[in-house]
Simulated scan of single mutants.
Amino acid sequence: MWVVYALLSALFASLTAIFAKIGIKGVDSDLATAIRTVVILILAWGIAFFRGGISSIGSLSKFNLLFLVLSGLATGLSWVFYYKALQLGNVSQVAPIDKLSIALTLILAFVFLKEPLTTKTLIGAGLIISGTLVLIWKA
């Protein structure tokens, strides 16, 4: 089932780039990010409320909260820079560079989470990096 969720994530991430590029015309990128964040805030809390996730909020440890806050900060900074890049560049070039996060995540997962860095993982990361270079190369 995780594959279905991952594919849906990819679909909505691609729509995010398209909708953002259309919506950001003539708009300050920081304001656009703030509007997007409010929508996500309402959506996420709504889902947590209606699916019963809020009831477990008291069981979060300080450790959980610390890393969830750090994750939120990283996400927020990612969005700020992504929207600025979309405002200044082409979606067809910005989106592939943004997806370099996949290769970086594989490396960081090896360093910090001790996840295996196999030959298959290295080849995949290399292909992602190579593909990104091909897509952003201006002829």
Rank of each mutant, 00 (worst) to 15 (best):
F50T: 02
K25W: 01
I129K: 03
K120E: 14
A10F: 04
N90C: 00
L7K: 11
K21L: 12
K21W: 10
L77A: 10
P116V: 07
L122R: 03
I35G: 01
W79A: 07
A6I: 13
V4T: 13
G53F: 07
A44E: 01
A17H: 12
V69T: 10
V38E: 03
T121M: 02
I129N: 02
A6Y: 06
V80Q: 12
A6H: 08
A103N: 08
I107K: 04
V3G: 07
I35M: 06
D28F: 07
N90W: 11
K114T: 08
P96S: 12
G26I: 01
L113W: 06
V91Y: 07
S29V: 13
K99E: 06
L70R: 03
A109K: 04
S9P: 01
N90A: 13
Y5M: 13
W45Y: 11
L104R: 06
A10S: 08
L88D: 07
L100P: 10
G23Q: 11
I47G: 02
A85T: 02
S29W: 15
Q93M: 11
L68I: 09
S59G: 11
V111K: 02
L133Q: 07
L65F: 11
S9V: 12
A85W: 03
V91N: 09
T75Y: 08
G23M: 08
S59E: 15
A109G: 04
L133F: 14
A20F: 10
I42K: 00
V80T: 12
A34Q: 06
A10I: 09
A13L: 10
S56A: 11
A85V: 01
T132L: 13
T118F: 05
G126S: 11
V27D: 04
V134Q: 04
F49Q: 05
V4R: 01
A20D: 09
V80L: 14
W45T: 13
K114D: 09
V39S: 13
K138C: 06
D98I: 14
V111H: 03
G23F: 09
K138Y: 15
A74W: 04
L68F: 08
S130I: 14
S56R: 08
G52K: 09
V111T: 07
S130T: 15
L43M: 14
G72W: 02
A34D: 04
S29A: 15
F110K: 03
R51E: 03
I54C: 12
I136S: 05
L133P: 10
I107M: 09
G26Q: 07
G76F: 06
P116K: 15
A17G: 12
L88S: 05
I22K: 15
F110P: 00
L31F: 07
L68E: 02
W2S: 09
F112A: 00
L60V: 00
T75K: 03
S101M: 13
F50G: 00
L77F: 13
S59I: 12
V39R: 09
L15S: 15
V134H: 11
N64P: 01
W2E: 05
F110Q: 00
L106W: 00
A34T: 11
V69N: 06
G52V: 05
A139D: 13
S9C: 09
T105D: 04
S14F: 14
S78L: 10
W2N: 09
L122A: 01
T132M: 15
L73N: 10
Y83M: 12
V4K: 03
G89T: 01
A139P: 15
T16P: 00
D98Y: 12
